[in-house]
Design a protein around this nucleic acid. Structure first.
Lengths: 195, 195
DNA sequence: CTTGCCTATGCAACTCGTTGCATAGCAGGA
DNA sequence: TCCTGCTATGCAACGAGTTGCATAGGCAAG
């Protein structure tokens, strides 16, 4: 189980309440790890009991009180230990691939609209990623502007660079997926015509 | 839930026992849908109760009896209906991405061996995919050999072409992942040097 | 000849994750 | 004014998926 660790990373990047975490999981983090608010609240309580995070009650006016969580030293240690564990092979659930093979036993043309919808979603996501990259990592678009140098890497820089390399992964994934979906659409259309 | 549908596709491609299905899910199908034998047996029983599949007891000598399942017409219909439903957005669980962002709060160098191991796994998988493609779809390597023509597409041909397009997706995914992992490794090594 | 592995199915207990619902005050629009 | 939606947390029930174990015969290696 890695939800604990995903939450820890998010809290190390910035402390926040369960509600805020849930929204983060709907946005940036949710692109590689999804979770509902229910699960987040439950796991946060367990993590607090284990001493991985500390909670601070914050009264607010005009809205309900909230508990702001932040990562505690035992949580940091647990994260460091987890980093040294072997990566377990990810369980894949690629529904679209199942559907494509299923289309052979029905009308392949019936799948075309769904694949097109899917394609639009990926195109929109790629656009959002690229927009976010321009906003958050502008230096990547103007390299050698201040000379590369061999400067020491501070902690914040490491954080940014690693966030960027993960984002680049998302971008390349979306590009690849778009190209593949075009391949899928071409195949489905050929099959539909050939009947 | 799509396990039922994945099983149906597999049984339409070829009937088999629960045990055989479990092994198929460890190999080809398991690349985009994983399942344990427990789950497969349970779902098969439910599918049989629903009339989606039919079971035939087959006595064997030298080994236990087995129940060979095959897809029944109601199962085909259910599959056709499912194909017309909207594709639900896939829940992503990309553990390595979480670890990479986590590395910012620990020693980035500690992650390098794990990423290298991961990379080897993907390289091996890509090699297997390419080998399988050469074996199962040799015509893709000698196009226009017999002239393309405009021949009608029969059911078996549709099945093969759709299997091939899914395989091409796997190949492109692995290629992209390898390139990204090299990017990740370069980033981690830079960070490790800069300390 | 014993140990371990393969075929083949299954029960029981567990964890993980989702869904529906509840509370409760405040803000903004029809 | 009522309805919708946002912030913020949580309970209860369910379904999906995993893990450990059991059975039971055959086969091959040490």
């Amino acid at each position: 189980m890695a939800l604990e660790h995903a939450i820890l990373v998010s809290l190390l990047e910035r402390p926040g309440s369960g509600y805020e975490l849930a929204r983060r999981f709907d946005r940036s983090i949710g692109r590689f790890w999804t979770a509902t608010h229910q699960q987040i609240y439950r796991v946060l309580r367990r993590m607090e009991a284990d001493g991985w995070v500390r909670a601070e009650e914050v009264a607010q006016d005009g809205r309900p009180d909230k508990k702001v969580y932040s990562a505690a030293p035992p949580g940091r240690e647990a994260l460091a230990g987890w980093l040294r564990e072997p990566v377990e092979p990810e369980t894949v659930r690629h529904e679209l691939a199942v559907r494509i093979r299923a289309a052979a036993f029905d009308d392949p043309a019936a799948l075309i609209p769904e694949v097109e919808r899917h394609r639009e979603g990926h195109a929109a996501l790629l656009a959002r990623y690229l927009h976010g990259e321009r906003r958050d990592f502008p230096e990547a678009y103007a390299p050698d502007a201040a000379g590369p140098g061999r400067s020491a890497v501070d902690a914040l820089d490491a954080q940014r660079r690693l966030q960027h390399v993960v984002l680049r992964g998302g971008i390349e994934y979306e590009r690849m997926t778009l190209a593949w979906l075009d391949d899928v659409l071409a195949t489905l259309r050929e099959l539909a015509d050939g009947r």
